[in-house]
């Protein structure tokens, strides 16, 4: 990990890897969308609306996954002071906020026909909403200081404090009796989901992860370049 933490080396590797990740992401999402929207059958209860799942569920996974990445990068930044870790955390936050917003919006669109309401104040929905605010708070805090270094450390501490919300979201459907259904995929016994629906779901999940990686690399390269430009301005 320390070997990759060199910004110049990262820039070189990122440049070669990025088109491949982006291409794979497009392939996965295209295949997942075709499989999910055309090939996979409609649900016997939910009808066609079940197809919202292929966007909603991967987006919700991403919202937690990216927050975990954000917290890990923040921890690495606080412990080893790698500048690249701070850049990664900064770059990941808006993407995570976007995925969280997507999960909330598609959830509302799905909830309207299924539960008969756009929004309920149940534990899963509320905790994801808090996650969204945590992302916004992190972004606001990181950019609130005149010196970026100061904002980076404050943001890293906040990200680690917010980690407490991740297990709460993950297990909220088990701890509380909620309208939101419990997890049907990550159970110890066989998954409760039919292969015809599982395949597009996993394709979309892989596509979203790759998309995240591609955008993350683009944003990190932009932030690094911006930092270099600022440093050059200061030299002048």
């Amino acid at each position: 990990m320390h070997w990759f933490a060199n910004p110049a080396r990262f820039m070189r590797i990122a440049e070669t890897v990025q088109p491949w990740i982006a291409g794979l992401a497009v392939l996965c999402i295209a295949a997942g969308l075709y499989y999910g929207l055309v090939i996979s059958p409609a649900d016997y209860q939910q009808g066609e609306t079940v197809r919202i799942m292929y966007v909603h569920v991967p987006a919700a996974w991403m919202s937690l996954f990216i927050y975990t990445i954000l917290a890990l990068a923040s921890g690495v930044f606080l412990i080893w002071k790698h500048p690249l870790a701070d850049i990664a955390a900064r770059a990941a936050a808006p993407i995570g906020a976007a995925f969280t917003a997507m999960a909330l919006i598609t959830g509302a669109l799905w909830g309207q026909p299924m539960w008969g309401t756009w929004w309920v104040w149940d534990a899963r929905l509320t905790s994801v909403l808090i996650l969204f605010f945590l992302y916004l708070g992190y972004m606001a805090l990181v950019n609130a200081f005149d010196e970026p270094e100061h904002g980076a450390r404050a943001g890293a501490i906040l990200a680690l404090v917010g980690v407490i919300n991740v297990p709460i979201i993950k297990f909220s459907v088990d701890w509380w009796n909620t309208l939101h259904q419990p997890a049907s995929l990550t159970r110890l016994d066989a998954s409760a989901i039919d292969p015809a629906m599982l395949v597009p779901l996993l394709l979309m999940a892989a596509g979203f992860k790759l998309y995240f990686l591609a955008v993350l690399v683009i944003r990190m390269r932009t932030l690094l370049t911006a930092r270099r430009i600022r440093a050059l301005h200061m030299v002048e």
């Binding site: 606001a140 805090l141 609130a144």
Partner: peptide, 15 residues
């Protein structure tokens, strides 16, 4: 966390 930040009053509520 917001010590030294701009507009710290609003920020602290958000956090």
């Amino acid at each position: 966390l917001v010590l030294g930040a701009r507009r710290s009053g609003v920020l602290v509520s958000l956090l």
